[in-house]
Design a protein around this nucleic acid. Structure first.
Lengths: 339, 339
DNA sequence: CTTGGCACTCACTGCGGCCGAGTGCCAGGC
DNA sequence: GCCTGGCACTCGGCCGCAGTGAGTGCCAAG
């Protein structure tokens, strides 16, 4: 009973603070949230909550604000799901349905997510390891230079320039193309290592160096390289929360330009359907210690093709943001999984 | 003579202000720049310069700062070229030389430019209209869906999903591929419209709808669509100049996320070798009225493959920034033009 | 366990005064 | 005719000060 009211107080604090961005005091709380008790009682509860580390006061004689731990509890136990309105769902659909190719899908969804949540949005391109090879193309670019293009079933296109030690011509390119396609087309990229291993022996010796480079590229692209691509939008929204960030804005922007960091944050949410929330220091990125990351995976079925999510201030409307991220991920997943 | 000294005073004001970010007064000027005249004389010159609109004072009893017009004059007539040091040139080279493909080149150069100039850097992908077609690939993605991939001689890869009204199979895809390649491979994309025009008649009627869509894509990509790609880096540097921007930072970030706007600013500098500077309102973008854009084209020969440049505060070291932008563009041009 | 009362804390605000960098103007000198 | 030193004036920024009020912690009574 007592426990219950304390949690209720915490919820009220979080909700009020998210709205007002001002430390919330006992009186205002008791009034606005008809808790049925007096401010003095609320004060006792607050005192207890502070003791346990869920809230804190910026300075004596100010109201309380939630701590990382407080937000965490709120997200885990207190926040229901705030479903999107029908209009919002329709907006998502109509915003995405005109997309003409993968690039377009990704760029539209990242903008959509940014506008919807008014936060910084990040969308990962479908990861290669969960796709299969549709086709591999080899073209000569010059006497000793070739371009290899790998097309996956999600429509993603991976390209790489290969410098050869020996001269190459269109015929050799064709031969390499045939060999690679024969071995890899239709295969899941995750299975590529085994297939590739036996490939060299079946090939004319003079082609082996080139082939080795190319298969090397294929394998490398599986290792979830840091260059794994992603799109970002809505950085302007960071300034919206400038009161929270102020001087840290610089380092936040810097962190957001580090692809590796973002991939870890967004990409680690590989389960579709579940929305992951990292609050403050849980991000494991010092520059983002005043932010929160809401992320999920997208794709058909349990295996995610990639991740998407938003980065915003800890003071964030979690139920709504989580719902928005999930909704966009669902549509994108259908769009890319459809085929 | 008198004119000369006035210009000298303007130069001194610009240089000091760029360094200190504080309105510069007559006394400090006379001291630091041994102009050989007294502060009183400098004051008279400043008065005249203000009359002519080259400088202004933020409030009475403060020093002067340059206006848009003042910076413009400085850039046009006063700023010599500040050559890069050998170490800097070497840094550029080594930073870029490990690039493995076009994406890599672009991303590396944009980061390089951002780090070097400590501004926001923008690099346009090589424009399609100035490239030629190396190869066109057509692959089926599903019973009624195909993927067309166009590879250009700069290594740029353009892809598009095409939905067909009639069922397609690998054979049809092969046929389309052959037709398109036969017609377009080796052609400059700028010449594509003529070639494409006569293509339909030579094709089996049942393939014509698909073919039309594909040639449509090719032509469309020539129209310098707003989706024309570009890369950006160093937005964190905007906060460095936060004193200048402060509340406008938000709108600047928003403007920078508008690809169309950026393409106009960066892409309009199509001449290689010449560095264009737009100061304040010259950008024609209201949100960027407190910024300056330094841009140039890159590529072999007089025709630019694309543009690159930086966006920063008007209070900027123009000679140095211009030199840096030019140097990076030169290297990138060599890298991509080499082939 | 809750409640009203009460003293206390402390960030924030507005006010007045001081300071000093910088200006404009003027009269005298080269 | 231009440069220069002198001088009065302006005005933004800084400092100290007191007043205000939201909010707290504690306590004794219900």
């Amino acid at each position: 009973m007592l426990e219950d009211r304390r949690l209720e107080v915490l919820r009220a604090i979080v909700e009020d603070f998210v709205l007002s961005n001002e430390p919330v005091g006992s009186k205002a709380l008791a009034e606005r949230h008809n808790l049925g008790v007096s401010p003095a009682t609320v004060r006792n509860d607050m005192s207890a909550l502070e003791e346990e580390g869920y809230i804190t006061q910026p300075h004596t004689s100010a109201g309380r604000i939630p701590t990382d731990k407080g937000y965490r509890l709120f997200v885990d136990r207190l926040s229901g799901v705030k479903p999107l309105s029908r209009a919002e769902r329709r907006a998502i659909q109509s915003f995405l349905e005109g997309a003409v190719d993968l690039d377009d899908v990704v760029r539209r969804s990242v903008r959509l997510l940014a506008q919807l949540t008014r936060q910084v949005a990040v969308v990962q391109y479908p990861s290669l390891s969960s796709s299969s090879v549709r086709h591999i193309e080899v073209v000569t670019l010059g006497p000793r230079r070739m371009l290899m293009v790998m097309i996956t079933d999600t429509g993603r296109v991976e390209q790489r320039i290969i410098d050869s030690l020996t001269p190459v011509d269109d015929e050799i390119a064709g031969e390499l193309r045939a060999t690679l396609n024969c071995a890899l087309a239709g295969q899941r990229l995750a299975d590529a290592p085994e297939v590739v291993a036996i490939l060299a022996d079946q090939t004319r010796p003079e082609l082996r160096p080139c082939l080795a480079t190319m298969t090397g590229v294929v394998l490398e692209s599986l290792a979830e390289r840091p260059e794994e691509r992603l799109a970002m939008a809505g950085t302007a929204n960071l300034t919206r929360a400038s009161v929270d960030f102020a001087d840290s804005l610089r380092s936040i922007l810097e962190a957001l330009e580090e692809q590796v960091v973002l991939m870890k944050l967004i990409g680690s949410a590989r389960e579709t359907g579940t929305v992951t929330v990292r609050i403050g220091r849980e991000t494991d990125v010092d520059a983002l210690r005043t932010t929160a990351v809401v992320a999920t995976g997208y794709g058909r079925g349990p295996f995610a093709l990639g991740g998407m999510g938003v980065v915003g201030p800890m003071r964030m409307d979690y139920p709504w943001t989580m719902a928005a991220v999930r909704a966009v991920a669902k549509y994108v997943g259908e769009l890319l999984g459809a085929d």
